[in-house]
């Protein structure tokens, strides 16, 4: 029992530095929604129900521009399609659990909780830890941080000077997670190809550039690994 508790808190500890990037992001989500004319409860409800900041920002932007509901919903879903990949990647570690518990873990899935947990699962000693509980520690930390900071942003966001550009903290948290994850030549190749393709594919509609870049990177890494192992 205490073993489980310490596994949960190991996840909490490992992910807590990332709150530094997620807290400003949550505040921005809250502030932007209120700035676009939503009541505070609307901003907070979005973060609780959707719980995926990037898609919320884009949806708010499109709603403010009076885009059709179909465009708003589809664009948001395309941005979140990367989580199909996270779901596939985490699934083997959550095998055999009951579906309700799986549903809770799924609702809490974020870029950060995924990246930190998968990094831990790849390290020595991971066979003996309770993997879902470790993930739960990372995920609950992100959930609390994001939603508390959305509330703060919704009520106090107008006080943050825009020239602080706190949105830059989010790519920085991704850099902090991705650089240690690039351990060999195939994964470096995957990252470089994904970045280049995402850059040039950026003008694609519905933010499809992200998916095109990610899929190209995965394919590139896989092909290079196969060529290496085939000699």
């Amino acid at each position: 029992m205490s073993d489980n508790l310490s596994t949960f808190f190991a996840g909490v500890r490992r992910i807590s530095p990332l709150t530094l990037g997620v807290a400003p992001f949550g505040m921005i989500c809250g502030a932007v929604s209120v700035g676009a004319g939503m009541p505070e409860w609307g901003a907070i409800g979005m973060s609780l129900i959707i719980f995926a900041g990037a898609s919320q920002l884009v949806a708010t932007q499109l709603m403010a521009e009076h885009a059709s509901m179909a465009v708003v919903i589809l664009t948001g879903l395309v941005i979140n399609m990367r989580m199909f990949m996270y779901s596939a990647s985490l699934a083997p570690h959550f095998k055999g659990m009951n579906p309700v518990k799986k549903g809770v873990l799924a609702y809490l899935l974020t870029d950060q909780a995924y990246a930190i947990s998968v990094a831990r699962y790849g390290e020595p000693g991971s066979e003996v830890i309770n993997k879902p509980l470790y993930y739960l520690g990372t995920a609950v930390t992100m959930w609390t941080c994001f939603n508390v900071s959305t509330v703060l942003g919704a009520y106090l966001g107008a006080l943050i000077p825009p020239q602080w550009n706190l949105d830059f903290a989010i790519p920085l948290t991704f850099i902090a997670v991705v650089v240690p994850a690039v351990k060999d030549r195939p994964s470096l190749f995957a990252a470089v190809v994904a970045g280049l393709v995402a850059f040039f594919a950026n003008p694609l509609p519905y933010n499809l550039g992200l998916m095109v870049g990610a899929v190209s990177g995965i394919a590139a890494g896989y092909v290079m690994e196969r060529r290496q192992s085939d000699g």
Partner: peptide, 28 residues
């Protein structure tokens, strides 16, 4: 299975590069 390993490096980099170089504008 062998592709899953490249997901973190690929997806996160595809999020980082446009945010750093284009930050929100859809024009290069």
């Amino acid at each position: 299975h062998r592709m899953l390993r490249f997901i973190p490096a690929s997806v996160l980099t595809a999020l980082i590069v446009p945010a750093v170089f284009l930050h929100g504008s859809s024009v290069i």
